[in-house]
Computed example of a mutant assay.
Amino acid sequence: MMLPLLLHRGLLRPLLSTWLAFVLLFSATTAYESVSDETLRSLPRPGKDFDIHDGALLAPILVPRVSGTAGSTAVLNHLADFIRTTLPDWTIQFQNSTSKTPVSKGKEIPFVNLIASRDPPGTSPGDVGRLTLVAHYDSKYEPQGFIGAIDSAAPCAIIMHTMRSIDSAMTKKWEDMRATGQLNQLEEQQGIQVIFMDGEEAFKEWTASDSLYGARSLAEQWDAEVHPAMSVYRSPLDSISLFVLLDLLGAKEPTIQSFFPTTHWAYKKLATLERRLRELKQLQSSDPGRSWFPHLAKSEHEIPLYMRIEDDHIPFLRRGVEVLHIIDAGDRGFPKVWHTMQDDGEHLDLDTVEDWSVLFTAFAAEWMELEGFMDASQIHKRSVTDAWHKTEFLQL
């Protein structure tokens, strides 16, 4: 990612699409129900799965994983294996592209995005809006051996924990809806998808062509794909209800700003959950009196509009997708370890990483309206550490 970016301009979608987005966002904000304190107290913890040496979720990502290298393939397989063995009801797809880079000497480098989704049973893809959680899994080309723990191994592990934590609750909710004849009601067609993005980092120097390789390819492809006639959503791009990008998370005492007026309501929902979890003494990190979200008390008219951070959301934002960018970028800039060799597992604040995983689980559970269906005891029984069996490497 790059700071600062540009003025926010040229990002308006056509009038009809803007109107539709407003209607959908209005519906989301008015129908959005908070989860209870009881649910917040029962949210599962990652435990040993976030151990930087042998944790089943995080440790395999803490390696150099430059796009097109064996390290990248190993991490991609780690992510895919986790979904296949732990979340069998999720659909996996890979989006492939190639591109020359400033260091590839004319050779085409492969970029592979992993997309995993879960929709209500019996629904058509074009009729389901999806909460979309995103993080990039590649690491920088230079300095050689760069790990990128906050950038972005920890965000990937946080998303993996979130997926696992809400999976059985979604099953229970949809089974309950099926039993009561509610499953096919239009307003209930809400799914979730995760994108592990490749090629975010620049190989040499951040430019429009040397950065965001995977994001640029995926946004272009999804914008061009068209769902069948009479679908609720025109394309996979339009099916994204909210694009939540996680980046540079894992340093102590993060500062998360709100960047976009149209998604400030979602920022406030996440910030409110953080405050509630802290009041309930469910978070382990930081000063109890300090919020990670300094714009919680501001309205959408009061957040700063003069600056943007260039990251994987940009190709989607330019096509009208609603974005919530969760990146540690306070008044002092990015975390001190950013793009240095110190951005490794040893410099993660694991209490903060764990708290992020609990917070995003709460956010996803609230978005998916899983109140009354979360059961932490069942999730703990499905520990990745105990149940994981590696499968064969993907043929890329």
Rank of each mutant, 00 (worst) to 15 (best):
P4V: 03
P4Y: 04
L7E: 10
L11I: 05
L15W: 15
W19Y: 14
L25Y: 05
T30F: 07
T30N: 08
T30A: 04
A31K: 12
Y32L: 10
Y32D: 14
R45A: 13
P46G: 11
D49N: 07
D51A: 10
D54P: 00
A56V: 03
P64S: 06
S67E: 05
A70V: 13
G71T: 01
S72T: 00
A74R: 00
L79S: 01
T85H: 00
L87H: 00
D89C: 02
Q93G: 08
F94E: 10
G106L: 07
I109N: 05
P110S: 01
I115L: 15
R118Q: 08
E142D: 11
F146C: 02
I147T: 13
A149R: 09
A149Q: 09
A154K: 07
R164A: 15
Q182S: 11
L186R: 15
E188N: 14
E188K: 14
G191R: 09
Q193V: 12
F203G: 04
K204A: 13
D210K: 13
L218F: 04
W222A: 07
A224I: 05
P228I: 04
P228W: 10
M230D: 09
R234Y: 10
S241F: 06
L242E: 05
V244A: 10
L249Y: 03
A251F: 13
F259T: 06
P261F: 00
K268N: 09
R276N: 09
Q282R: 15
L283T: 11
R290M: 01
F293D: 10
L296E: 14
A297E: 03
A297F: 01
K298R: 13
S299H: 02
H301W: 03
E310W: 14
D312A: 07
H313G: 09
E322V: 01
L324H: 03
H325L: 07
K336D: 01
M341P: 04
H347V: 09
H347K: 09
L350G: 07
V358I: 08
F360A: 02
A362P: 09
A362F: 13
A365Y: 12
E366M: 02
E369N: 15
F373S: 03
F373Q: 04
M374A: 08
A376R: 15
S377P: 01
H380N: 01
H380A: 00
K381Y: 11
K381E: 15
K390Y: 02
E392P: 01
L394E: 02
Q395W: 07
L396R: 03
